[in-house]
Design a protein around this nucleic acid. Sequence first.
DNA 1: TTAATTTATTAACAATTGTTAATGAAAAAA
DNA 2: TTTTTTCATTAACAATTGTTAATAAATTAA
Lengths: 191, 191
Amino acid sequence: MFNNLRQNIEQYVHFTDIEFKALTDKIVVRKMKKRQTFVREGEICRHVGYINDGLFRCLSLTEDGVERVEHFGVTGEWISEYPSFPTQTPARQTIEALRDSEVFLLSYDSLQTLYDNPKVERFVRLLNEAMSSENRLLINEIRHAVPEERYRLFMSLRPDLIEQVPQHYIANYLGMTPVSLSRIRRRMLSY
Amino acid sequence: MFNNLRQNIEQYVHFTDIEFKALTDKIVVRKMKKRQTFVREGEICRHVGYINDGLFRCLSLTEDGVERVEHFGVTGEWISEYPSFPTQTPARQTIEALRDSEVFLLSYDSLQTLYDNPKVERFVRLLNEAMSSENRLLINEIRHAVPEERYRLFMSLRPDLIEQVPQHYIANYLGMTPVSLSRIRRRMLSY
DNA sequence: TTAATTTATTAACAATTGTTAATGAAAAAA
DNA sequence: TTTTTTCATTAACAATTGTTAATAAATTAA
């Protein structure tokens, strides 16, 4: 049941069976249908989730009420709303399942209890450091790339998503119009 | 001497005088001249620094050997290379003082020792969570903004830097040419 | 101080992207 | 199945940005 989760954690710290069980005892397994939401804008995100199997998108609404796709979460990744989850404040984003999914939930309160074990604190610190490293790289790649380059980067970083996610969601995620993405794809065929 | 540093830390966790002294005992104060480097590309970043007074830029080189400004660090902020510092691997960026500066250095090894106190671990976790929240916001603002909007965002987020940093560094940081930034500024005057 | 270098602005042209609208294909709902 | 909705592509035009080059101002070095 929790084999993949255990492998994910052991990348960062080693847990004994007892320590791992202390963690899994707090987990609630949730099966989600396509289009169900993990958290909605304005709600407080009460859980962090390990995606045991699934596909999610995080989206926000601009002032004009236009959807903005900000993140995709796939099997084997952690998902939650930042800063809503760590600070328990209202979420800016909505997180929605793009297909039927299964997530392992840890509530904010459970996690605070688990922090009594410094190994858990260390695990989350290391997870956040890895995330920060990734984010810093991403920020600069994006900032210095025109839409075509962003799509090329996306293809190289997330080839799995090209197959799974509707193209207009990818276009939106990359900060361009579906029309522009379609043109870029056509241009790339002729190289 | 360490008043500002203490205030910075107390935003996240409360340290007793003894705990704070344990930390400052590990600190090395470094005065840096303009253009001196904190770490260079290819080196391992051995320290994290609290900028007690100063101004820094982080830059990398593209494949074509072109400089890319990726970050500015100002007084009161922490600076180091990610992932070089947390993983002790070669740095991708160079960090350079833009004016005479003073930083409080903590070495990687000292920090590992300090982690024996779970409060330090917690402080760094919270610092990273705050950084992750910021980065996620930034990623999406950037991804969905054209150069002019990026400059407007930069003005609202970092008005202090407009004064202090040469304009072509800001243009580079924002992923546009100095020519384009100059045009944007002119356009904005006529609104 | 004088000379050399760096920096910001402006102009002209090429290239890419956004916008709007139309079409056909694919997927979902009735 | 039939109908409706969603999705990807293409075209035409407007707007913005990149590129290159020239100039003047400001800063730095000699």
